[in-house]
Design a protein around this nucleic acid. Structure first.
Length: 832
RNA sequence: GGGCCAGUGGUGGAACCGGUAUACACGCAACACUUAAAAUGUUGUGCCGAUUGGCAUGAGGGUUCGAGUCCCUCCUGGCCCACCA
């Protein structure tokens, strides 16, 4: 018997499959199934065992679907624009193009050594003109439909990367790439209006077969809040609130709240330092604000701070706007207004009605500045007037401060008597109060998507400016609007493309004197927001992808990638899909029907694998030592697909031994075939086919593998194994271990590749065993076991059970109250 | 503070609709083969007792003939979000 030599076998079949174009995507699919991995950024450090689990999962699933007769689209490509290559260029002077191509070559070689069944004819590279031409086309479409716009905005500026960052890229006030402290800067920026789709992006999550945690992350990110808007008139500064002139912001201070039921508990207002009311009070000489300088100083200090610095300061701070008051819309009470930096300018209206009795932050502020606290809700009911001084103990206020409110609710100047709401639930009261004094409002945490980057290694924004400074999309015939080649790498603070003479000249040549190019590039999330469409028709040079071909394959049936993309990438791709649907380019509104996350592979010590800790496992090394088939099985067997697992070199022995057993089994079989006609009617076999089929369909690869191990353990104990049975084993195993199964399949003398065979089927009837072992319980505790035949009736089984030696001892002198029989499982006798 | 998830042998984990908890694998031990080792094979392996018993799925309650699974309270850990009104 030959030894199992994984090296020669894997090399041989990888070559053969490539020559035979075994994984070519069918042209006109009748039974399409689109299985997609999140395509990687080809980093310089190469593929990492963490990638392997995800890619192997989709590979197993793709092979399984093909064997079940599906036409499978399973492509791979490169999310190739990005900062690391540019930073590497700055450091070494090597052009990002060169470095990127090198990295891609490394990745591809590593992927191919794993025996993954990608159709490489469909490879895409987002940094190539034939791809980004259509990214630019997408931009011009959004621009034409008012979904892309340039607007002045305070943006996150990373001094380290010399660029603008999206909110999503700022982690705890620091750049998520270089960790520099992010500062705020006012700039003109390109945005995609994702907020137009906020409601649909929330509502459509309902119908997606995605992990609940991922849907929840998206909901949290979008942050839809139902609540109410109230307008508080502003008094003071010599302006009569009732004669509000339209351009005077002080006529009404608008607030958003999710707790309209607490309206009668408002004792002060707080506005963000950036709020326009503050600015107008400070600017207007006659505003009558008495502490002008103090307020100005506070605002200046607050604006110098980043959000992070404001958060770090746990103590709430603020300054009262002296001489100005707000008028309560229900009671007419005059209420003090404060500027306070705990109020966020970017959320809601940038101003709040403060209810210190029912909000922790407001409470802390009120305590500090000695402001009234009015309890208006007790135990989720609008408090009765008499309760507003009594019964406070043990309520929210009590738990907040241990203090009694300083002033009890007053009905001075009440328009509608607040007692009208007594005893209503918080929700009911809130609704009525909203109706009478304000209006319903929904607000979102989601901001528009800032897509401009002052970087070199990205897709150029296809926009030029006429001599008046008006933006025009570059017409389609000039796409791709190529990335110029004459740009120095070193960052200077201005956009790298600013320094390109080539780009300037090109713009003037085409559009005329005085025209200038846009010099920022697109966020790489734009590149990856539509790539799944391009895979359906990657070589099309007249459109981004033929509409009919897209319709053939899309939406993606099965999408797999890391949970770290739960928000950004997945949200952006959903938005672009909806926008393209609204522009009538595609006919579906969700890109990914079903989604799975692969778990992270941690280092042996349970920490993240990282280059600096030198604990990264290179898949090539493992493939050399034990083979790709073993590595694939090891990673899928280590635990549930979505769970994080620690790499464990010792445990690789299990799958390797298993494959060696299969190897020996096949060879022994070859040497002493006694009965090739043994019918395939064995219940173990049928049970295995059933279990593996179900497990793979559910992405439960670890249990699929253990079922296969059980089958092999069983076959090993038999004197002979027929070719039929071996053939079934090999087909079940083929998706997991494509090389060894192909080798053994050929050895069996079968026609064609094992990967082109039909998936084995099972007969439900045949999975049943003639005799089953059932448990006998007395009062729920197992007291014995017995073997019964499948056709024995309930009555006979129960009487047999009573005869059981041990059980009869337990039943002696007891009256049986109930007899419970569960088919194929157990009998339970319930006694007194 | 909010959201989501998890806690089962020495280890990774299995247990589908509430029905014999610990499948499968790693590790460990003994034995066989061997001059020896490796490899392979066989047997054993939750804990306490040693006889047919008792106790075990983070802790404590509950529902049930029966709970790892369902409900309540709590503890621990992880991930994401967070001065979002």
């Amino acid at each position: 018997m030959k030894e199992y030599d994984h090296k020669s076998i894997e090399k041989k079949w990888q070559q053969r499959w490539a020559d035979d174009e075994l994984y070519k995507t069918p042209e006109s699919p009748e039974n399409p199934h689109y299985i997609l991995d999140m395509f990687p950024y080809p980093s310089g450090s190469g593929l990492h065992v963490g990638h392997v689990e995800g890619y192997t999962g989709t590979d197993v699933y793709s092979r399984f679907q093909r064997m079940q007769g599906k036409d499978v689209l399973h492509p791979m490509g490169w999310d190739a624009f990005g900062l690391p290559a540019e930073n590497y260029a700055i450091k070494t002077g090597v052009h990002p193009r060169e470095k990127t191509d090198e990295s891609i070559a490394t990745f591809k070689e590593q992927i191919n050594r794993l025996g993954l069944s990608y159709d490489w004819d469909r490879e895409i590279d987002t940094s190539r003109g034939d791809y980004y031409r259509w990214t630019q086309w997408l931009f011009t479409q959004l621009f034409a439909h008012d979904l892309a716009e340039k607007k002045p905005a305070k943006v996150n500026w990373c001094p380290g990367c010399q660029t603008v960052l999206a909110n999503e890229q700022v982690v705890d006030g620091a750049c998520d790439r270089c960790d520099s402290h992010v500062v705020q800067k006012e700039m003109n920026q390109w945005f995609f209006r994702i907020t137009d789709y906020a409601d649909e992006l929330v509502d459509d999550l309902e119908n997606l077969d995605w992990p609940e945690s991922t849907k929840q992350s998206q909901r949290n990110w979008i942050g839809r809040q139902e609540g109410a808007r109230f307008t508080f008139a502003v008094n003071g500064g010599g302006t009569d609130p009732k004669s509000s002139s339209s351009e005077d912001d002080r006529a009404g201070l608008e607030v958003f709240t999710t707790r309209p039921d607490t309206l009668f508990g408002v004792t002060f207002m707080a506005v963000a330092p950036e709020h326009e009311l503050v600015a107008s009070l400070l600017e207007n000489q006659e505003s009558g604000i008495k502490n002008h300088d103090e307020v100005e100083k506070y605002v200046e200090e607050a604006e110098a701070k980043t959000d992070r610095q404001r958060q770090e300061n746990k103590e709430k701070t603020g300054v009262q706007l002296d001489g100005v008051t707000a008028v309560h819309p229900a009671t007419g009470d005059e209420i003090p207004i404060y500027v306070a930096d705990y109020v966020l300018a970017g959320y809601g209206t940038g101003a709040i009605m403060a209810v210190p009795a029912h909000d922790k932050r407001d409470h802390a502020f009120a305590e500090k500045y000695d402001i009234d606290i009015k309890v208006v809700v007790i135990d989720n009911e609008i408090a009765k007037a008499s309760d507003r001084s009594e019964g406070i103990e043990g309520t929210t206020t009590d738990s907040l401060s241990g203090k009694k409110p300083k002033e009890i609710f007053t009905d001075k100047g009440v328009i509608i008597h607040p007692d009208t709401f007594n005893g209503l639930s918080s929700d009911e009261g809130g609704e009525i109060i909203t109706e009478k004094f304000g209006q319903k409002e929904t607000t979102y945490r989601l901001r528009d998507w800032s897509v401009g980057r002052q970087r070199l290694w990205g897709c150029p924004i296809p926009v030029v400016y006429d001599p008046d400074g008006k933006a025009h999309a570059v017409p389609e015939e000039h796409l791709p609007w190529t990335l110029p080649d004459d740009v120095p790498f070193e960052p200077t603070g201005e956009a790298p493309l600013e320094k390109s003479a080539e780009l300037k000249k090109r713009t003037e040549d085409i559009f005329g004197e005085g025209w200038t190019p846009e010099t920022s590039t697109l966020d790489t999330f734009v590149d990856s927001s539509w790539y799944f469409l391009r895979f359906t028709d990657p070589h099309n040079d007249t459109t981004f992808a033929d509409e009919k071909v897209i319709q053939d394959w899309c939406p993606v049936d099965t999408y797999v990638g890391g949970a770290e993309h739960s928000v950004m990438h997945l949200l952006y791709a959903r938005f672009i899909t909806k926008a393209l649907a609204d522009m009538n380019h595609i006919e579906f509104r969700e890109p990914f029907i079903s989604l799975h996350h692969q778990g992270m592979i941690m280092a042996e010590d349970g920490t993240k694998m990282s280059k600096s800790k030198e604990n990264v496992v290179n898949p090539n090394r493992v493939v050399d030592q034990v083979g790709a088939d073993t590595l694939r099985m090891y990673e899928l067997f280590a635990g549930p697909f979505g769970d994080e697992v620690d790499w464990n070199t010792d445990a690789i022995a299990g799958p390797r031994r298993f494959l060696e057993k299969v190897w020996r089994l096949a060879h022994q079989q070859e040497e002493n075939i006694k009965d090739t006609a043994t019918p395939v009617d064995d219940h173990v076999l049928h049970q295995t086919v059933k279990a593996v089929t179900k497990s793979v369909a559910d992405f439960r690869f670890n249990t699929a593998i253990s079922s296969l191990m059980e089958l092999v353990n069983d076959l090993q104990d038999r004197e002979t194994v027929s070719a039929d049975v071996l053939g079934i084993l090999l087909r079940l195993l083929a998706p997991f271990a494509p090389h060894i199964t192909e080798e053994l399949w050929q050895k069996l003398g079968e026609e064609g590749s094992v990967h082109l065979q039909d998936w084995p089927t099972y007969d439900e009837e045949a999975t049943r065993e003639a005799e089953v072992n059932i448990a006998i319980q007395v009062n729920g505790t197992v007291r014995g076991e017995m073997v019964v035949s499948q056709d024995a009736g309930e009555a006979s089984i129960i009487s047999q059970a009573k005869e059981h030696d041990n059980v009869s001892n337990w039943l002696e002198d007891k009256a049986i109250n109930r007899e419970i029989y569960v088919e194929n499982r157990l009998v339970n006798f319930v006694t007194d």
